[in-house]
């Protein structure tokens, strides 16, 4: 195994080797997908340090639970779900510490977004990708945890409403309402950023 070229080995093979206790194989998996796992944690948490810690915790859990990975999805999808669960746990703990509550969130999504004027400017037009990314970054910071989470699960994780509802322990109606609010808020924030510049 010493001559094995890990960099050209597929994820599936690396997982099989890691299951046998090959830490070098697991390190290669970490190196390959660390940006993606960190990015998901950062998008959800909006805090770099916390995102690094949670992504590392996800890798540790991944190693411990390799036996439970049956290849039904890709390894990165499986790892992404682990980091999302860790982020959700952390957000729940954070919410307990803050005054923010589910009830307040429900109130927030109970009609405000319906009164917002429709944004007619497409934020992706006439913008360099880097500029747009910076704007989205700032806009995501201004969303509440629950609205950002529902947006991440739908837009990045491509989860269906019913799966988001299960993950966030709420009804499908609440998911739809929160997603609607999050999208409209993002459109409004991106339009405001357009005006400011």
């Amino acid at each position: 195994m010493a001559d094995k070229d890990y960099s050209s080995t597929s994820d599936e093979e690396l997982v099989a080797m890691a299951r046998q206790g090959d830490m070098v194989a697991f390190e290669e998996l970490v190196a390959r997908h660390r940006d993606k796992i960190f990015a998901r944690a950062f998008t959800m948490m909006r805090n770099e340090e916390e995102a690094i810690d949670l992504s590392q915790e996800a890798w540790i859990k991944g190693w411990q639970r390799l036996e439970q990975f049956h290849g039904d999805s890709s390894f990165t999808t499986w790892m992404t779900r682990i980091v999302i669960n860790l982020c959700l746990d952390q957000l729940r703990r954070r919410k307990k510490r803050q005054t923010e509550s589910i009830e307040e969130m429900n109130e927030e999504s109970g009609g405000v977004e319906r009164q917002m004027p429709v944004v007619t400017v497409n934020p992706t037009e006439r913008l360099e990708r880097a500029d747009l990314r910076a704007r989205i970054d700032r806009a995501l910071n201004q969303l509440s945890d629950v609205h950002r989470t529902v947006l991440v699960l739908h837009e990045f994780e491509e989860m269906e409403y019913k799966n988001i509802a299960r993950t966030m322990n709420c009804s499908i109606g609440t998911v739809m309402s929160r997603l609607f609010y999050a999208r409209r808020k993002m459109a409004s924030l991106l339009a405001d950023l357009n005006k400011q510049e």
Binding site: R34, F38, T43, I52, V119, R133, F156, M186
Partner: peptide, 29 residues
């Protein structure tokens, strides 16, 4: 408007990079 928000977010995470070296990040794990 709803569709534009979705389009704007597409590919957003691809630009996020871990701000630590491979070795340092792996060492804690």
């Amino acid at each position: 408007e709803l569709g534009n928000t979705t389009k704007a977010l597409a590919g957003f995470e691809a630009g996020i990079k871990l701000p630590e070296s491979r070795e340092f990040y792996w060492s804690k794990i």
